[in-house]
Structure formats: structure tokens, C-alpha cells
Design a protein around this nucleic acid. Structure first.
Length: 875
RNA sequence: GGGUUGGUAGUCUAGUCCGGUUAUGACACCUCCUUGACAUGGAGGAGGCCGGCAGUUCAAAUCUGCCCCAACCCA
């Protein structure tokens, strides 16, 4: 039985350890009913550092969902993954060991990555267990593991066989620091200081000079055309001629195109291989030359003549200086502008023509939009993000990366005819660098020489397969079909994630799983907002406002953090506020203390359910109100309305159960009260369990686990979610009785009396029959008289008229103002059911007469809701 | 630059889709109260031009337009 004060420092780690040791949340190995199995697909966090408070926040919301459905529905599949196969993890290893991947042999570097990641993964595990997440720790995966490599390569081969992947030499976004192609989603804008250079070009045909403006003079050798806007009258005579490039001397055509921004600089712009995405479009549309001046590591090529070998940055300075010497630099001014950088390393990206693998997506935009529509979105409005992303797609998905660590493409090429040779599905995973291709000779040309593909998959190509990884998707060679080890969890019930990754992670997962299985992988998606600091500002290392999970956990119970996290409306950002955690602490304490009182008022052995007619009116009232609350909380949790579920349950428990019923029950000593207390309290523990996972478990074991059926004997989290009892109850009478008690409390408070002070005589004008003993008991009333039907002995004075605007408004329109004016001045007359005012007559249903009650008799006159109470008390 | 979402007492928040006249609750603040768990509790009080401007309407926190601020997504 609970005693003393609750000690979360001891209880929380105890239960966390026990949940893990006893595998409380293990998903069964044996077949599970697909109708009750509930599966969550958590996006595996990237192993690139420590977990931050945002991870904790999102995880708690997932866990509330998991715990609720475990109690409400049945078995819950709640796995955990570590995403450790991407550039982020490689860069972590480089940072941690102070090395560069280029300096190591591929296998050796991969081994180093694994070692660094292992330490961080152990820390992830510890932290996640430390917030009491009900993850099944038997179901964890690493995105670099052989099993996942197999799934990932199977996915590649399946899409290839479906004709949805192609290899092409084309302009691609390139990070010169990481020396790999990257996709559009991996870039971000960075506002950087730069210079605008006005450079003098010459028209070859006329030797007439003109000015172009550029931030990238080092691309002069890469210039392949000059553009003016078709509407640009001042420059239109240039079109059709050629321009001679200063310093480099080559000539390029001058063309017209609408993409030119006439307002920037001179309105004449140079097009290079490639400065930006515009250049790529011009290259494609106008069939321009390729003049590659910058190589994979951002050094100048032979095209740059004497600048060959210089880093692009050095070349820029050198070229600017030489332009100046040649009197070709008209102006140079400092500006600040947005530069496209690689989000992982902050390096400005280049556009290089390289051979890469792509997944075709543009042709199925409408289908993928429909796939998104088929999911239920919490909140609904987040679907718009998905929609705009899909509608705005401009590139197929580039999935090859020129990195050391990652999952290799299961592909070889014929050395003679370049035919693509894919691995056999049953042989996966393979590494073409060390494994042989599945054929001895090229089926096309018979050559026996093969070149292995050196590239690895984009990390998202793998992390977009988590539903399939979790479901145990595989290729059955004998049956020649894809199979699933746990078909009952696919499609998965919910996919939680932050709103920042809807566009790439969620989108890619939806489309890949959809292509493999023909089904949308999620029934619903739940989008959480971002965690902000206490001033509602985004947390960032540079601002120094980052909240460290460890610091919070040291100061507050985990349940308090869980309470705080559940205070958000789904999709909204949530500021970190200590008072939110303090409120959580208060609720934990209240729950603990109330439990102690329940224990002492209704000690062991707990009475069996009495016949319904033995329950007193107040008992039936409480249990009926609780039924109502159960329905509300259940609906709110189903709709992921965490904040409403939390606040509603909290105020019902605190106000109705503790302040109202518990106080009344103190005066009772019968079995009906004991049964009611126990029944309600046991139900409260269950209702709070998804939220306050630890304290409810502690109390459950103190009070109920021993006598519980089945799994509930092990954990409240394995108990069944409560359903309404459906008792008949006088809910109006109970509400009136509570109003009477409230009025009497207020009376005592106003008269500075202690709440347990005796009251001599109380008269109640409301139907509180059946609740008399409860009122006298809790309020210490010596003589209570109830007048269920009689009018109170008061004079009523008309104090005003309330209009029913819903009918009066539309009916009288502009006259409403006049009517209101007359009413305010008292210029009206009540005539039976009618009201004469301002030349109109309102009928009975169009207004209500407001009456003030005046009591002239002895004692104090109290009003609450529709209840009138008269107190006569000798001091 | 474009799009999305949000802006409600000192702070956080409900209500906004579907307009109806004392705008919800919590924290903090003020006053009072030791009551069979909890004073880390209980009863009460004060605190708001619902981001700004304009419009629609008898009536706007709610609908429309423009503007300002913030976050996110995309250029």
C-alpha cells in the first residue's frame, strides 16, 4: 500500500529496468490477430550525435499512443531503429576520430564508422529507456546491418525490374567537400557575404563592350552563352551576335530567354557550366556546350587555362585581379545573398555532369498524391505540406552517392558494352567490390570483364523502407514472390514524425512501400511540432538555448516531462517551460496522495461489487460521471488530442473525484463507498497510465496487481482499457448536490470559517433527494431541509431583458440597435408573454426576462447554478 | 520572392471549420481557510481594445481583403 511520499528517483529507474528485463512490451513471436495488432513505424534517428530534447518530445507522444493502444486494442508493435548508414554517420566518425574517409580503404573506414556509431547507439538506447518508452527492445534494427542491406538491395532490384530506376549522365547537385552527388532535399540556403562583379564583355561582331554582373567570376572559363530578356529593348540588338569572354578569349552566342532577371545588374547574364539551376535549364533547352571548369573537389580544370589546379576560391581572386589589370572589371561591390549549401557540411554546392542512378517519380505525381490522401492525417492540415511537395517536384530522385560507407548498389557493368548486371535476389546482400557478378559472360556481348558499381545508396533509399524492414519483407526464391514475416502489421497503423520531414522522409517511404506492395504503408500519420525554448524561439546550438535531456531528467521526474509533452495540440510547436513540468509534478503528487486516502478509506479486502441498489445516489453519480469521462478521454486519445485528453482527465480527477467525491466519502464507512472508491481509483490509474507511466505502475503494484487477471498482474500497461459501467444515475441531482456543497464552501470561505465548521440549518431549493446525507456529512450541517419543488421564499425583481439574437437579429435587422437602446433605458413593458419595446412587440421565445432574486428573510441567501440555498447559522 | 501554419490576460492555452452579445482552463499574482491524503492543499478575487487596419453583417476572436510578426516548407 502506498505510504509516505512518492519517490520518483527510486521508482522510475526501477520500473524502467523491470520493463526491459521482463520484456513487458515485447511483441509476440507467435501469430497475432491482424485486427487488434497495432503497429507504429518510428523513423529511426540519424546516428550523428546525441539525442536532443526534440527527440524526447516526439518519442513521448509516440509512446502515449503506443501505451493507449496496447491497453485499448491489443498487441503493439513498437520498434526502434538506428539510422547509421548515411553521410551523417560518416561525418560523425570523421569528426570523432579526426580523420578523412578518403585516406582509408573502404572496408577499413566502414569498420571505424561502426565503432563510433556503436557508442552513440548505446547512449540512444539508454536515453530512450530513461524516458520510459514502451519500445520492444527485441525489435531494434540498424540501417547498416546485413538484414537491412538485403531489404534495401531487394528494393533496388524490384524497382529496377519494374522499370522505375534508370542510370543517366546528367547535371547533378554535387558537394565538393563530401565529394558526392546529393539530392535537392539535402541542400539548404545559407545567407553569405559575397561580391557582385561587373565584368566587361565584348560583342565579337562589333567590338562593342557590354557589362554582365556575376557573383562567380571563376566560372568565366565555363561560360557557354550570354542571355538577355526578350523584352529588354535596350539590349535587344545584341541578340544573335557573339560575346568574347575576357581573359579566356572564347566566343559564345548571345541569346534571348525569359528567365533573365532584367532588374539585376545590367540585365545581361552569363550562362556557365554550371553556376545554378537556371544554367542547367538553359543548357538543356538551348542545347549549349559543356565547358566544365570545376572538378569534383572544386579545383579548376584544364578549361581554365593558366588557372588549372587552383581551388575555385583561389581562382576567383586570381581572375578578379587579372580582370582588374586588364581593365575589364567595371565594378566590385559587397553583397549578401543566399547560397545553396550542403546541409551536412555547409559547403556551397556545385552542379556537375555525372553518371548517377535515379528513381523515377515525376511520372506518378498524381498517384502519389492519392496515396497521401488515403492516409489519415493528424492534424489534417499537414496534408497540405505533402500535397505541395508532390505538386512541386521537379527532379527524379537521385539515389547514388559517391561515399565510402553505405549500402552498395548490387550492380556490375559489362566492361565492353556497359550493360547493367544485377545481383540475384537470393544472393543479397552483396558488395560488388568483393563479390562476383551472377553471370560469367555478358548476355549482350559475351564479354567476361565486369566493372563493379562503386557507389552506395542515398541514406533515404534505405530509411524509406522501415515499414518493410519491420514487417520482415523478403524474397522467397522458391515461390518467386515477396513475403512478409509479420504480415499483420503491414500497413502499419501510425507513422509519427516531425513536420520538417514530411516532404522527403514520409514521401519517400510512402512511395517506395507503395511501389513494392501496392499498398500505402500507413493508415495514419501523426505530425508533431518542434520544441521551442521558453521564449518560443527555435532551439539551436549557436543561440545556446538548447535544452539537454539529461539536465531536465535530473531535475524532474520523467512522468513530469511526459505530462509536459502531452500538453501539446498535435502539429503545434511546444515551448519548453519548466512550469509545465512543475504542473506535472503536482499532478503526480496529487495522484499519490489521493491513492493513500483511497487506501485508508477503503482498506483491504476490497468489497465485491454490491447490487446496484445498494450503491447510494452519490456513488452512482460519480461512476456515471466517470463513464462519461472515459468516453471523452478515449475519443480524444484516438484523435491524438493529447492536450485535451490530459487536461480533461486532470480536472475531472482533481475537481470531481478529489474535491467533490473524496471529501464526501470521508463521512462514509459502508461497502458501497469502498467499492466506489476502489472502482473509480483503479480506473483512474488506467486512464492516467499512458501519460504518467511510472507513478501509475508503482501504485498499480502497491494496490491492484496482486489480484489482477492475466497480464495485468505484471503491469498496469498490460491491463485492459476501462469501458463504461453504464449504471443508472441521477446526474442532475448529483450536479445540484455538488452545487449546494460548492455554495456552502463559498459561504464558509466568505465568512472566514474553517471548512469543517458546523452549520446550524440549511434549506435547499432543488431536488437533491438521495444526496442529503452527503451534503450534511461533508459540510457539517446539523439540520438540512430540502424543498424539491417549492419556489424559494424570495422576491424576484426584473433586472433586464436578454434578447435571443439568433431570431431577433435576422428578424429586426437594423432595428436591433434601437431595441437594445430602449431596453438599456428601461423603456419597455412586459405584457404577458409579449414584450413591447421601441414600437415592436417581441413574442415569448424571442427574449428572456432576467430576474434578480432578493431575500428578505433570516439567514444568508446563496445561489449557484439553478440551486438556491438558505443558511441560518448562529456564530 | 512564393506557399503553409500560427498570433487570444504577465506566461501557456481552449474556442475559429459551422458568426449570436458575462472568451475556456492552467501557471504566476492578491485575499481568506490547518479540513480524516495533499498548505506542493482548499475557497474566492483581480487581470483581455482575441496581432493591426479595412470590409461583409442586425451581430465578428470566428467570414473576406490588405498589412505586420514568427515558425516551417519551397525558390
Amino acid at each position: 500500500m502506498p505510504s509516505g511520499e512518492y519517490d520518483p528517483d527510486a521508482a522510475e529507474p526501477y520500473w524502467q529496468r523491470r520493463w526491459v528485463d521482463e520484456e513487458t512490451y515485447a511483441y509476440p513471436d507467435e501469430p497475432v490477430d491482424p485486427n487488434t495488432a497495432f503497429a507504429i513505424d518510428t523513423p529511426p534517428p540519424t546516428v550523428s550525435g546525441s539525442l536532443h530534447w526534440g527527440h524526447v518530445y516526439g518519442s513521448i507522444l509516440q509512446d502515449v499512443v503506443a501505451r493507449f493502444h496496447r491497453m485499448h486494442d491489443g498487441e503493439v508493435f513498437y520498434p526502434f531503429g538506428y539510422d547509421d548508414n548515411g553521410i551523417a554517420s560518416e561525418r560523425l566518425a570523421e569528426r570523432e576520430l579526426d580523420v578523412r574517409h578518403q585516406d582509408f580503404e573502404r572496408r577499413e573506414f566502414q569498420r571505424m564508422c561502426r565503432e563510433v556509431c556503436e557508442a552513440y547507439e548505446a547512449e540512444f538506447t539508454e536515453k530512450m529507456q530513461g524516458v520510459g518508452l514502451s519500445i520492444d527492445w527485441n525489435n531494434t534494427y540498424r540501417t547498416i546491418s546485413p538484414e537491412v542491406q538485403r531489404v534495401s538491395q531487394l528494393s533496388f532490384i524490384d524497382l529496377y525490374e519494374q522499370g522505375r530506376e534508370y542510370r543517366e549522365e546528367a547535371p547533378a547537385i554535387w558537394c565538393p567537400e563530401c565529394e558526392t552527388a546529393i539530392s535537392q532535399v539535402e541542400t539548404e540556403d545559407d545567407e553569405q557575404d559575397s561580391h557582385f562583379h561587373d565584368i566587361e564583355f565584348t560583342v565579337a561582331e562589333t567590338e562593342e563592350p557590354f557589362i554582365i554582373s556575376t557573383t562567380r567570376p571563376e566560372l568565366l572559363p565555363a561560360c557557354v552563352a550570354v542571355f538577355v530578356h526578350p523584352d529588354d529593348e535596350s539590349n535587344e540588338d545584341l541578340v544573335g551576335n557573339h560575346a568574347e569572354i575576357p581573359l579566356f578569349g572564347h566566343q559564345v552566342p548571345i541569346l534571348a530567354d525569359e528567365r533573365v532577371d532584367m532588374d539585376t545588374g545590367s540585365g545581361i547574364v552569363m550562362c556557365c557550366t554550371f553556376g545554378d539551376q537556371n544554367d542547367i535549364e538553359w543548357y538543356q533547352i538551348h542545347d549549349l556546350d559543356l565547358r566544365v571548369a570545376i572538378d569534383e573537389s572544386a579545383h579548376m580544370t584544364a578549361v581554365a587555362d593558366e588557372y588549372e589546379g587552383l581551388h575555385a576560391g583561389e581562382a576567383r581572386e586570381a581572375i578578379v585581379a587579372d580582370l582588374d589589370d586588364a581593365d575589364a572589371l567595371a565594378d566590385r561591390r559587397a553583397i549578401s545573398h543566399a547560397v545553396n549549401v550542403h546541409e551536412r557540411c555547409g559547403t556551397s554546392v556545385e552542379f556537375l555532369v555525372t553518371e548517377q542512378w535515379y528513381v523515377e517519380v515525376l511520372d506518378k505525381r498524381e498517384e502519389y498524391l492519392q496515396a497521401g490522401r488515403e492516409m489519415e492525417w493528424f492534424p489534417e492540415k499537414m496534408f497540405t505540406r505533402y500535397k505541395h511537395w508532390v505538386e512541386g517536384l521537379q527532379w527524379d530522385w537521385l539515389i547514388s552517392r559517391q561515399r565510402s560507407s553505405g549500402i552498395p548498389f548490387p550492380v556490375w557493368y559489362c566492361a565492353d558494352c556497359d550493360r547493367e548486371i544485377l545481383a540475384e535476389k537470393e544472393a543479397l546482400p552483396v558488395d560488388p567490390l568483393s563479390d562476383d557478378p551472377p553471370v560469367d559472360a555478358c548476355p549482350d556481348c559475351g564479354s567476361e570483364e565486369f566493372v563493379p558499381e562503386n557507389d552506395v545508396f542515398d541514406t533515404w533509399a534505405t530509411s524509406s523502407l522501415t515499414p518493410l524492414i519491420n514487417a520482415g519483407w523478403d524474397w522467397d526464391a522458391a515461390a518467386e514472390e515477396f513475403t512478409m514475416e509479420r504480415p499483420e502489421i503491414y500497413p502499419m497503423d501510425v507513422r509519427p514524425q516531425g513536420h520538417d520531414i514530411i516532404s522527403f522522409w514520409l514521401f519517400h517511404t510512402v512511395i517506395k512501400c507503395y511501389e513494392h506492395t501496392g499498398e500505402v504503408p500507413f493508415d495514419s500519420t501523426m505530425i508533431n511540432g518542434m520544441v521551442l525554448d521558453e521564449n518560443r524561439e527555435k532551439m539551436s546550438k549557436s543561440k545556446g538555448n538548447v535544452v539537454e535531456p539529461d539536465a531536465v531528467m535530473e531535475k524532474y521526474p520523467v512522468d513530469a516531462a511526459r505530462y509536459w509533452a502531452a500538453g501539446s495540440a498535435i502539429g503545434d510547436d511546444l515551448p519548453y517551460q519548466e512550469k509545465g513540468l512543475r504542473a506535472g509534478e503536482k499532478l503526480i503528487r496529487k495522484l499519490w496522495n489521493a491513492s493513500k486516502l483511497v487506501e485508508s478509506l477503503a482498506p483491504d479486502p476490497y468489497p465485491e461489487a454490491p447490487d446496484s441498489d445498494e450503491l447510494q445516489a452519490i456513488d452512482r453519480w460519480l461512476l456515471a460521471e466517470l463513464d462519461h469521462e472515459i468516453e471523452r478521454v478515449t475519443a480524444r486519445l484516438e484523435n491524438r488530442e493529447f492536450s485535451k485528453a490530459r487536461d480533461g482527465l486532470r480536472s475531472f480527477f482533481w475537481g470531481t473525484f478529489c474535491d467533490d467525491y473524496l471529501e464526501i466519502a470521508k463521512a462514509r464507512e459502508d461497502d458501497a463507498a469502498a467499492y466506489t472508491l476502489r472502482t473509480a481509483h483503479r480506473r483512474f490509474l488506467k486512464l492516467f497510465a499512458p501519460l504518467l507511466a511510472h507513478v501509475t505502475e508503482e501504485l498499480w503494484h502497491e494496490m491492484y496487481a496482486e489480484g489482477a487477471d492475466g497480464d495485468a498482474a505484471d503491469s498496469v500497461h498490460l491491463a485492459d482499457w476501462p469501458t463504461p459501467l453504464g449504471l443508472e444515475a441521477d446526474r442532475a441531482g448529483g450536479a445540484a448536490a455538488i452545487a449546494v456543497v460548492g455554495a456552502l464552501r463559498r459561504y464558509k470561505s466568505e465568512h472566514q470559517l474553517p471548512l469543517n465548521a458546523d452549520l446550524d440549518a440549511v434549506e435547499v431549493y432543488a431536488d437533491v433527494r438521495g444526496f442529503e446525507a452527503d451534503i450534511t456529512g461533508v459540510m457539517h450541517v446539523s439540520d438540512l431541509t430540502v424543498h424539491p419543488d417549492a419556489e424559494p421564499p424570495v422576491e424576484t425583481v426584473v433586472s433586464g431583458i436578454d434578447l435571443d439574437y439568433a431570431t431577433v437579429g435576422p428578424k429586426y435587422g437594423n432595428e436591433v440597435g434601437t431595441i437594445e437602446g430602449a431596453l438599456a433605458e428601461g423603456a419597455y413593458e412586459i405584457d404577458g408573454d409579449d414584450l413591447h419595446v421601441a414600437d415592436v412587440t417581441l413574442s415569448g421565445e424571442e427574449f428572456t426576462v432576467e430576474k434578480e432574486r432578493r431575500y428578505q428573510g433570516e439567514g444568508a441567501f446563496l445561489e449557484a447554478d439553478d440551486v438556491v440555498v438558505i443558511v441560518r447559522n448562529e456564530p
